[in-house]
Design a protein around this nucleic acid. Sequence first.
DNA 1: GTCTATAGATCGATAGAC
DNA 2: GTCTATCGATCTATAGAC
Lengths: 200, 200
Amino acid sequence: MTIPASQNWDCETAARLVTERSDILPILGEVFREHGVEGASLSTITEATGLGKGSLYHFFPGGKDEMVEAVLAEIGDWFEQHVFQPLETTDDPERAVNDMLDAVLDYFHSGRRGCLIGALSLAKTRDSFSEPIQLYFKRWLKTLARALERLGHSRKRAKELSEMIVLGIQGALVLARASDDRAIFTRAIGRLRTDVAPVG
Amino acid sequence: MTIPASQNWDCETAARLVTERSDILPILGEVFREHGVEGASLSTITEATGLGKGSLYHFFPGGKDEMVEAVLAEIGDWFEQHVFQPLETTDDPERAVNDMLDAVLDYFHSGRRGCLIGALSLAKTRDSFSEPIQLYFKRWLKTLARALERLGHSRKRAKELSEMIVLGIQGALVLARASDDRAIFTRAIGRLRTDVAPVG
DNA sequence: GTCTATAGATCGATAGAC
DNA sequence: GTCTATCGATCTATAGAC
């Protein structure tokens, strides 16, 4: 059985007989988060996914590097859909920012889950990963600053606030995980929520 | 003990014939910062330090794990001496906090240098390292909150501010390195400096 | 103390049966 | 598409000469 035990699927319909690449990306992400990219061996991945090396190389001919790229791309897609796009399109800018913080709170499991992209930033072992990482943060800062401008902040202040927020989220993740105290993360998100209060 | 490898010493006096354990700790630290703990192989370390495996195991019989522990201990000592103790003993609390930010700015090379402890926090591969990491941040938060109290902040506000500051430093490091933009780090430190302005 | 040589395990990656 | 078997490379760690 190649379906992870934790994942639900409709038992009434036919069970999935074929594994899809997209099914194992979340598992890969968790493995990389937990062990680090270099610390996650193919044996670890094999065990976590329930797939043999043959299958893994069928989906990712480029090996572990391609797995990392795929995971990063998936994370980027998730944030594009659940964070960046809403920031751009939501009419009420205050709601847009609050929704973003909710999405972040949810994504990082209230601080229990680490940030793979942040971890890769600190130990930049590969230049091949630095481009998507750079784009990820750049897009986040940009869309957030735009929303803050619509909230009434000056362009300069909006840029500064966006930096404070993204940086605050990353730092809260580091400190919360290091201290093994999720409350640090939730408290930080709460503070950010009030910091961006609309001007006037 | 804290001499970086790049530092010159008086060539007139006798060159060091014996290597001391403390001499290679800074090099080990940089290697772990750059490649990550799992990504730094003994070959990498051998090349960086110029020492053979025999010498490395002479100094660190416990292998790489002991090297990491020693590096963490050295970092802890450095912060104890240059950050925590000054925070506790400097008479003027405002100067104490400002000196701390200066020390941090210097230690992380204005954002060019990553935080090994922060990196280890995000990918907590070993429980053996989590204790010194936890203590490091706990002590930082404690001594900083004390200084902020002496600055006139309430106990609660001081605790909150200390969290914001430590978390802000870590987040600024992540974002600055991910964006390859040191200005993000220096700007963040500047903001923290004004955030802790004495009350009244 | 420092080196080289090497053991033993594990790594990433491939080949081929089914 | 998935598995097992296996390769060569690399890893950590040790042994022993100097």
